[in-house]
């Protein structure tokens, strides 16, 4: 549908958001990502029944962990949409980008090692 969204969003493909691990989210932040978000199916319509619900729990867990070490938990978020919702995807990408811009750069970035 060629809907514009910010170029700073880059996608890593997983079979199901249930595969997304706390470690993956933490690693991205540790390596200097300013924000990470997980995009799953709408709640109740996970192809694998409940992977997206697990992902949400993990995202919430990472949010807590980040807060505990003094970072904004909100750098990590979970969004849900169905595969037919291109415009919503673009809207979330913009929303997340605006949100992260407001938070400013990830303070860990200066120590980040590739």
């Amino acid at each position: 549908m060629r809907l514009d969204y910010p170029a700073n969003v880059k996608i890593i493909r997983v079979p199901c958001t249930g595969k997304v691990d706390v470690l993956h989210l933490m690693r991205a932040i540790q390596r200097g990502a300013d924000g990470v978000y997980v995009v799953g199916c709408l709640e109740g319509s996970c192809h694998y029944k409940e992977g997206n619900l697990r992902a949400r729990e993990r995202v919430m867990h990472v949010q807590q962990l980040l807060q505990e070490i003094g970072l904004e938990g909100d750098r990590v978020r979970m969004y849900n949409l169905s595969s037919g919702e291109g415009p919503t995807f673009a809207a979330y990408a913009r929303e997340m980008t605006e949100h992260i811009k407001a938070l400013g750069p990830n303070p860990l970035k200066k120590w980040a090692t590739a």
Binding site: N8, I12, P15, H24, R27, A28, R31, G32, A33
Partner: peptide, 19 residues
Amino acid sequence: FYEDDQLNCKIDALLAGGM
């Protein structure tokens, strides 16, 4: 096909470019 290193390397490669 989605082993931890196969996902982590993508994260690392992405952020190695600096964001």
